[in-house]
C-alpha cells in the first residue's frame, strides 16, 4: 500500500556565505577584466543549488566555468554578427533592413536560447545522483513561440496570457528527473483573469494589491506543477500569502536601499528561503525508484545567450 506523505523542502544558505562568494567573484572578475564571469557564475550557482534541499538532499549544479566560457564566446560571436550586420546596413542607408535584422535576429534567438539553456541547465542539475533533463524539441518550441508572438500582436497583447502558459506547459512539461517527468497543467484563461484582476486591483489600491497579485502568480506557478512516474505523483502547493510577499519584498527593498546594493546577497538568500519555505510537496512517490536516464549535455552557448539577452531562466 502506497503511503501518502510530504517531502521537506528547504534552503539553508546564509546571506553571509553568499556575500563572501560574491566578493571573491568580484575580485577575480576585476583582476581578469571580466573574463572570470563564467567561473563566478559557476561558484554562485553551485552555492545556491547546494544549499537547496529536497528531502534533506541538496541539489547539485555541475556546470563548469570553462563550459560556460566557451558558450559565452560563441554567444558573443552570434551577437556580433547580428549587430555588425545591423550597423553595416544602417550605415549603407538601409535603415529598414537594419531594423528588420536586429529585431528579427534577436527575436529568433529567444526560443533558441530558451531551448538550449534548459537543455544545459537541466543536464547539469542533479539530485541524489540522478540527472535532470529537458526533452523538448527545438522546432516545436520555435513554432509555438512565433505562433504566440503573432497571435499576441494581432490581439493587441491579450493572447499574451495564453502564450505564456503554452510556453510554460511545453517547457516545464518536458523537464525530467531521471525516469520521472514534470507536468505543468496551466490554463491561459485562468492566467489571464489572475493578471486582469491583479492589474485592476493594483491600480485601484495604488499598488498595495501587487503583493497579492504576486502571491496569485506564484501560487499559479507552483500549484499546477507535479512530478509523475507511472502511477505515482508528487504535487506541489504554495502556502505563501499576500502578506508574506509584502514582508519579503518590502524588506528586500529596504536592504537594497540602505546597503547601497551591497546587501544583494541577503536579498537572494532571503528570496530562495522564502520560496523553499512556502512550497509544500506531497504525494505517493518513493524517490528510491528514480533511475539515471537523462543524457549528458555540455554546450552552454544558449545559457550564455540568455544571460546576454538579459532574460531570466524561469519561464
Amino acid at each position: 500500500m502506497k503511503e501518502f506523505r510530504s517531502y521537506p523542502i528547504a534552503f539553508e544558505g546564509s546571506g553571509f556565505d553568499y556575500f563572501k562568494i560574491q566578493i571573491v567573484n568580484t575580485i577575480l572578475t576585476i583582476l581578469t577584466l571580466g573574463l572570470y564571469y563564467p567561473w563566478a557564475k559557476e561558484k554562485s550557482l553551485k552555492f545556491l543549488y547546494g544549499k537547496s534541499t529536497f528531502e534533506e538532499t541538496p541539489f547539485v549544479f555541475s556546470g563548469t566555468g570553462s563550459e560556460m566560457f566557451r558558450g559565452f564566446i560563441k554567444a558573443i560571436a552570434v551577437l556580433v554578427v547580428i549587430y555588425g550586420l545591423f550597423f553595416y546596413l544602417v550605415l549603407q542607408g538601409h535603415n529598414g533592413w537594419g531594423i528588420l535584422v536586429i529585431y528579427g535576429g534577436l527575436l529568433a534567438l529567444v526560443p533558441l536560447a530558451i531551448h538550449g539553456s534548459y537543455r544545459y541547465r537541466m543536464a547539469k542539475t542533479s539530485w541524489r545522483g540522478i540527472r535532470f533533463g529537458y526533452t523538448g524539441n527545438r522546432g516545436e518550441l520555435v513554432k509555438l513561440f512565433f505562433k504566440g508572438i503573432f497571435l499576441t500582436l494581432v490581439t493587441f497583447g491579450i493572447y499574451g496570457a495564453w502564450f505564456t502558459i503554452s510556453l510554460r506547459n511545453y517547457v516545464l512539461g518536458h523537464v525530467r528527473v531521471g525516469n520521472a517527468r514534470f507536468v505543468y497543467s496551466g490554463d491561459g484563461s485562468d492566467f489571464f483573469w489572475i493578471n486582469f484582476k491583479g492589474y485592476l486591483l493594483t491600480l485601484v489600491t495604488l499598488g498595495i494589491y501587487s503583493f497579492w497579485w504576486q502571491k496569485d502568480l506564484f501560487e499559479y506557478y507552483v500549484n499546477n506543477l507535479r512530478l509523475e512516474q507511472e502511477d505515482d505523483a508528487v504535487f506541489f502547493r504554495s502556502t505563501a500569502t499576500g502578506g508574506d510577499f509584502a514582508g519579503l519584498m518590502i524588506v528586500n527593498f529596504l536592504i537594497m536601499i540602505f546597503t547601497l546594493g551591497l546587501g544583494y546577497s541577503w536579498v537572494v538568500t532571503r528570496t530562495m528561503a522564502f520560496g523553499a519555505n512556502h512550497i509544500e510537496a506531497n504525494g505517493y512517490y518513493s524517490f528510491e525508484q528514480l533511475l539515471q536516464s537523462q543524457a549528458e549535455y555540455s554546450d552552454a552557448t544558449a545559457e550564455d545567450m540568455a544571460d546576454l539577452l538579459d532574460f531570466g531562466f524561469v519561464i
Partner: peptide, 21 residues
C-alpha cells in the same frame, strides 16, 4: 564537499552524481 542541514555530502566525481552521505 557540501555541508547542509544535518549531513555532509562528499561528491566523488566531477559531475556530483556519485557521492557519500
Amino acid at each position: 564537499h557540501n555541508g547542509v542541514g544535518r549531513y555532509h555530502f562528499f561528491y566523488l566525481d566531477p559531475q556530483g552524481l556519485v557521492y557519500l552521505k
